[in-house]
Design a protein around this nucleic acid. Structure first.
Lengths: 209, 209
DNA sequence: CCTACCGATCGGTAGG
DNA sequence: CCTACCGATCGGTAGG
């Protein structure tokens, strides 16, 4: 029944992620995390020397999973509109698979904007240039809207994905009743918005990649 | 020099808004707000009987300003693309004028999703139907993309505005250096995304309104 | 991983 | 709007 003691540290990280995402860092006490794991507070502080160390470990895990994702997405060799769909789907899936990731990122952006500036540069900038170069190529061939701002467009789209997944529950309460899960419906429209705002013609003109 | 005692309550609200937006509700102590105002803690609790009452007052003020805005926006009688631009600009201006509004809304959506569901319904649903009806009209005349999901599109756009303004500082750090203020650049692209994802033809075909 | 304990701060109250 | 004070909880440490 009990998890073996060898993965107590891992379960501290799991519970901390859950609670930080739901209630925020300041809204979550070390005691509450220890209770969720089923150990005493000083035992938790043996694994992570301070509450802030635990926060950094939680954030680190999200960002390292993100770093794993990026090479896989960029390795997709399909071209044009299919490449767009595959890449955007990968980003959506990454956050949808665990909405706590989106909530955590959103909270850190609000709580510690200066710290996050550095982390975003480190984790997004490298591959951002690859994507924006590819977009500019599309602009030269006329596939992509000429007046699109590549960097701003990309930042816009990722922001929209993170925000939509992070606060999906309350905002999709505005949608009329439907058989479709509300978040799916919201994400589907997000993808359509991304596609139409990127491509100037939507036909199957996959001519480079 | 000192503000007269008659507007102490107002200045409590102002400082609470600033601090809740920057550090969150749990991250801000009643003592910190009292310090910012220049009074003692029990004096603050005379004006607002509890910390939670102060939180509700702060949120209420944001939402009531929002309620003031909506009729003005919908009174805009221009049509088609101009109507879109004017309405979206009004929403952007509302949050840009005081980014704390966007941060506050985002934090409440994360901290209290259930409570916010009700408030969103109350404050957005009424005029949401007006907008989506207008969008459907555009779909019948062919001005608006036929496969657009009106409710989801509208929720998507407002979410994007709030998120972009709320975390504008850290996310625009990803943009290359420019003479243009980064948030302006980000907002300009957001408007372009909104326009191209809404209209199927962007010519000046203002035929109804 | 535990018991026992620390000073500091939390939101809030009594009483004027 | 103040002084004085409340019990509860905070993150963290000593010591085993």
């Amino acid at each position: 029944m009990d998890p073996g003691p060898r993965d107590v540290k891992e379960s501290v990280l799991t519970e901390a992620t859950r609670l930080f995402a739901a209630q925020g860092f300041e809204g979550t006490s070390v005691q509450a995390i220890a209770d969720a794991v089923g150990i005493r507070k000083p035992s938790l502080l043996y694994h992570y020397p301070s509450k802030d160390a635990l926060r950094r470990a939680v954030l680190d895990e999200v960002l390292s999973h993100w770093k794993d994702l990026v090479p896989r997405v960029l390795a997709e060799s399909s071209s044009g509109i299919r490449r767009f769909e595959a890449a955007l789907k990968a980003v959506v899936d990454f956050f949808s698979a665990d909405p706590d990731r989106a909530r955590l990122v959103m909270r850190e952006l609000l709580d510690r904007p200066e710290e996050m500036e550095g982390l975003l540069r480190e984790h997004l900038h490298p591959w951002m240039n690859l994507v924006t170069d590819y977009i500019r190529l599309g602009q030269q061939t006329g596939q992509v809207h000429a007046d699109l701002d590549p960097e701003a467009w990309l930042v816009q789209l990722v922001t929209a994905v993170v925000a939509t997944v992070a606060v999906g529950q309350p905002i999709t309460a505005l949608l009329p009743p439907s058989t479709q899960p509300p978040l799916d419906r919201q994400v589907r429209e997000l993808v359509r918005v991304g596609r139409t705002s990127l491509f100037s013609r939507t036909g199957p003109g996959a001519s480079h990649g």
